[in-house]
Write a protein that binds this DNA or RNA. Structure first.
Lengths: 205, 205
DNA sequence: ATACTGCTGTGATTTCTGTCACATTGTGAA
DNA sequence: TTCACAATGTGACAGAAATCACAGCAGTAT
């Protein structure tokens, strides 16, 4: 898999440096990539798979913020890296995942020298910020039924698939709700013909 | 009032440019500074007063994200400005407010030439991002009573004052709740000796 | 086949929050 | 003073969601 196709906007000099300095790294589904309070030594570009960015609550619940997909980068790691500070969030590989780790020390240099990198970083900040905003919107203004619909829709949009392999418990965790509530709401959605329910799988219609 | 004291980290050349190119602007308490969907033509540095950054819901409720104080800047306007895009949030002067408007066209140039500006922008991104994160935390994991305590505490920390001039209705709006609920919770806090209630004023103890 | 485990369905109950209705109390203007 | 209005207090009720309890059900291992 050629990573350059994922970042077509990068200029040649930038690509060269990244190829020389960055390290490719693999994670298995379920691996924790970054945890709350951990110092960041590099920024990750996602090449393959999916990374879940979430916030842990007291009881170990994993409240979903957003996903990182191939071609994206972790805004938090960029900011933290640039300031050698710790992050407040958790990152976990949802599927087997390949990332390109760019060492912190390079960041300032890349920002100065390569317009396309600079643009990319700004762009990344903006999309993550917007995503956080829409999360706030959702929990602040919407009930669980609407949040659930949004959750399913977002997944479908991101993956392009009509089916989603996931347990009710898992959805409940992502939305910081409880399994029973999600089951009931899903049943209602099924009655409204919005989904079809199967074991460990939800089909959007 | 000398604005340079608020931004002691800025280097001389940067200060010079800002003094030449930036425009100072005043807002009265209550003025809307930026509204959802509006294009951004400049970035604002806060000199005096307080700016409320919030999200509007369907019924005109103003869900509070965070405040900008003197010495801070609006991360959203920076990002939007750099990409000539619209914002998803609202900004309103809470008190009479003075800001320094830095034209968009300058941004790229400043970023390249002045390390201190670059650092400032990164720092701004990070603090706003963290603030948003803590907002998410609050609504996702805490009940209204805890959110209210957090709200009051944050205000006290920011202003350094023990008293807060605000109506219950206003708090309810900021937290996207209702006046009665807030009144009741405040009463309970008073019984626990955490606050003293007066008309249009809450005193922390 | 049997047993075990994880996923799903469902009722009953409780807590939290929002909503409606209305009383009371400060405060400033006339 | 008196009136008007904004802010606050409170009870009653409704709805959303969390929690508890338990019953099927599907797939896996023995």
């Amino acid at each position: 898999m050629n990573w350059k196709q994922l970042f077509p906007q990068f200029e040649p000099g930038l690509i060269e440096i990244i190829e020389k300095e960055a390290v490719q790294r693999s994670y298995n589904a379920g691996d924790i990539i970054m945890r709350t309070g951990q110092y960041i030594k590099s920024t990750a570009l996602v090449l393959e798979g999916r990374i879940k960015i979430y916030r842990e609550n007291q009881d170990g619940g994993e409240f979903l913020m957003y996903y990182l997909e191939p071609g994206q980068a972790c805004a938090v790691s960029m900011i933290c890296a640039l300031q050698s500070e710790t992050s407040e969030i958790m990152a976990k590989a949802e599927e087997d995942t390949e990332v390109l780790m760019i060492p912190v020390q390079l960041m300032d240099d890349l920002m100065n020298k390569y317009k396309s990198w600079y643009q990319f970083v700004i762009q990344t900040y903006r999309s993550r910020f917007d995503e956080l905003l829409s999360v706030v919107d959702n929990i602040a203004f919407h009930n669980m039924d609407e949040r659930l619909e949004f959750y399913l829709k977002r997944h479908a949009d991101k993956t392009g698939k009509k089916v989603m392999e996931v347990s009710h418990q898992r959805i409940a965790d992502d939305l910081n709700s409880s399994r029973e509530v999600i089951s009931r709401l899903l049943k209602k959605m099924e009655q409204r013909n919005l989904v079809k329910l199967h074991r460990n799988m939800i089909e959007l219609v």
